[in-house]
């Protein structure tokens, strides 16, 4: 029973990680930017939700739409204000990475100045719980699962069946040939950032509703996304999702026989094992034909 409950908890954490990790991965694959400021986008979505719910008194469904749109817009804005000027100077990937960390830190500080470092809560009290015998599941777990079940297939259909979805995959595969085919790379970047940030918006809406909003809430999320992407295999989207679920499961299942103090040991031990024995990640073989 304990094991089953831990498994369910792990899948629920994994679902939330997957939303941010896949958003992060889609941006990295398409633009080759290690977008650490994805964490700031996440937090911005949380504050947008707070403003929509608490200050504008919008119904929650509308507020979530506002949060999603704000996250997407914020992601695009970071691309335009931070990465595009760096690209125009032909900066290296390392410079873009430093730029993204700078943007993350700056945004956190600005959020703290505007909203203080207090937690802003969107709701009161404990979450509704559903009991199934010995197993109990919170409403957030159920919604997280629901979002993943709906959003990921839609994302898949978008990427495989639409003109711009195909262009995103093409850009990730071979940027030079994409240009030759007439893809406007700068405009496609905006779309990629919007989609990746939208996914983070889903995750933050849930987390903000459950745990409230704080300026630095995006940082651990960012870290988890990065690890999930490495474990799952850089460059392969389902790999990032699988990596996220694996991470959530590891974190929770490690508690089965070990104390919580061992959580990091298990998770980062797994990361090291992957880096050493499967440097291409869980699904590295899917990338044998990727561009160099």
């Amino acid at each position: 029973m304990l094991l089953l409950q831990l498994f369910i908890d792990g899948m629920a954490s994994g679902a939330l990680y997957a939303l941010t990790a896949v958003g992060f991965a889609i941006i990295y694959n398409g633009t080759r930017i290690l977008h650490m400021a994805h964490g700031a986008v996440f937090t911005a979505g949380g504050y947008a939700l707070y403003i929509a719910v608490k200050l504008l008194n919008l119904p929650i469904a509308v507020a979530v739409v506002v949060a999603l749109a704000s996250a997407a817009a914020f992601g695009v804005l970071i691309d335009l204000l931070v990465y595009r000027p760096l690209r125009a100077r032909k900066s290296s990937e390392a410079a873009l990475f430093i730029g993204s960390i700078g943007a993350l830190t700056l945004c956190q500080a600005v959020f703290a100045l505007i909203f203080t470092t207090d937690t802003l809560y969107l709701r009161q009290g404990p979450l509704p719980i559903y009991d199934f015998g010995e197993i109990s599941i919170t409403i957030m777990h159920i919604i997280a699962a629901g979002i993943v079940i709906v959003v990921f297939p839609i994302l898949h259909l978008f990427l495989t069946l639409t003109k711009y979805g195909r262009a995103i995959r093409a850009l990730a595969d071979n940027p030079k040939l994409s240009v030759v085919r007439g893809v406007n790379v700068e405009r496609l970047y905006m779309l990629i950032f919007a989609i990746g940030s939208l996914l983070a918006g889903f995750a933050v809406s849930l987390i903000a509703y459950d745990l409230g909003v704080r300026p630095e809430m995006g940082f651990p999320v960012m870290f988890v996304s990065l690890v999930a992407v490495i474990v799952g295999g850089v460059g392969y989207l389902p790999g990032a999702a699988a990596g996220a679920f694996l991470l959530g499961l590891l974190q929770n299942l490690s508690l089965w026989q070990l104390s919580g103090r061992w959580q990091d040991v298990v998770v980062f031990g797994a990361l090291l094992i992957f880096l050493i024995f499967r440097p291409a990640g869980l699904f590295g073989h899917m990338l044998s034909t990727r561009r160099v």
Binding site: L2, L6, D9, I207, L211, M217, P220, S259, G260, Q263
Partner: peptide
Amino acid sequence: DETFKTQDTEMRGQLTK
């Protein structure tokens, strides 16, 4: 006897146990 870290926001696993 379970612990969590200062930056943790989730302690559901510990509580399940």
